[in-house]
Design a protein around this nucleic acid. Structure first.
Lengths: 235, 235
DNA sequence: CGTAAAATTGATATTTCTCAATGAGAGTGG
DNA sequence: CCACTCTCATTGAGAAATATCAATTTTACG
């Protein structure tokens, strides 16, 4: 793995794939042209770290392409993945001046990176942008609370079924609705997201397949019986 | 339990105990006088529900006094407490227009309640207030992520030790620093917060007491060996 | 093709849960 | 004031879920 923070030649917000989502959706055409000068594109290679917990947060990031894992480590190495970031997700909000989790590229990732200070100045007199950022924070908070319920109160099978369904849901804006669900993250990542071990995740996948709920395919799963999966997830 | 949403005679923000915290800290004296007319005080009896998940969110709440449990229920009744609210905490932010968790008073609770629409208009042209609200949301998000790590990756003993220490920390602004930690919530509440059963919480308390880390006292615990508790929590 | 990493499977251990009984404290009515 | 009762907390014994350890198998990659 080479150090590969490659800056791509500046491109245009108006052509950006995530223009309609993320923070950018709050900006009108003229603002977008100014905004363009704030961000620079960067690429990250698979498994490369984009930022680490406790690092001074000098940038905000808009994910343009690829998937990232967001995680926290305990001193003894146990890992909890607190979320996966997809195109359109906005990262780097904090109050301490430091990131409160680490972020790795899972596959190749492209981001739009904003230096903290100029971005802060840009927001300053644009309350609609601030409102948009607030909206994103509150949405994440709601997701975080849902995930607490999953981690604290659900069985392994419920966790996996819930994960597969909500991951499918998250992929809809990217790939359209489909019962074929791509899983770019490893089994270990899934385990660390669900508060399980890799073995339990693997066994649960196998069980769901035996029961005809899913089919395990290369790089993901196929949802054979969505209704049954929903039932397992709801319980 | 009588229906007891008692509206207290309007009082003054300048005399308010939480004036310096919560959202109010963003307001100057003149704004505070206007703000005064937006909120009305309300009291809730022990165990009374302040709002329920999926209710239309018509108000924001500033906790003035008392402790609330914030929780989500699964269809089969399993409960996950997603947080406890203390004086200064601000509740009711959402994007769907509905609350995404339920909130009960644990003991008697006093709140300052703001109707959604006028509060929204008040924020409209006060970006510094919006910034403050954003700050609170981001702080909560960070706490939520910490709690995910606890729920997903820590043992029962670590969970309890971590809870006691962080609860002590939260009480400092209210009671000052102390090794005597009041626990107004029930063991069941603690269990539902930590993703454990009441029996496991009880056993863990007893173990910590046997080990000389804490002493169980009426309505709380006394932290006898903070250093050992920290060690258990960190691991 | 050969090697390394990732995923699966099996056997066993451990933690935490479940079910059941007991104990302690708070409030009530005789 | 004291027994009574209710709720909450604690304790114990056994069961269940998930983790751990170890061995294959499969997949990815040079």
């Amino acid at each position: 793995m080479k150090p590969s923070v490659v800056t791509i030649e500046p491109s245009f917000c108006k052509d950006c794939s995530i223009r309609g989502s993320s923070v950018c959706s709050a900006l009108d055409a003229s603002e977008l042209r100014q905004f363009e000068h704030l961000g620079r594109r960067a690429q990250f290679a698979p498994c490369e770290t984009v930022f680490s917990e406790e690092d001074i947060a000098t940038s905000y990031f808009n994910v343009l392409d690829g998937v990232m894992r967001l995680y926290k480590l305990l001193p003894d190495g146990r890992r909890q993945i607190v979320g996966f970031a997809l195109p359109g997700d906005f990262l780097g909000m904090n109050i301490s001046g430091r990131h409160n989790f680490s972020a790795d590229a899972i596959g190749a990732v492209a981001v739009c990176q904003f230096a903290k200070a100029p971005f802060g100045r840009f927001i300053e007199d644009r309350p609609h942008l601030l409102r948009r950022i607030n909206e994103l924070a509150i949405r994440e908070l709601s997701q975080a609370r849902d995930h607490m319920v999953l981690l604290g109160r659900r069985s392994a099978e419920e966790k996996v079924a819930t994960f597969l369904l909500s991951w499918r849901e998250r992929l809809i804006p990217l790939h359209g609705p489909s019962n074929t669900v791509a899983l770019p993250m490893s089994r270990q990542d899934i385990a660390d997201y669900l508060g399980l071990t890799i073995e339990t995740v693997s066994r649960t996948f196998t069980k769901l397949e035996r029961d005809g709920v899913i089919e395990i395919i290369h790089g993901g799963i196929s949802l054979l019986d969505p209704a049954r999966a929903e039932a397992l997830a709801a319980a």
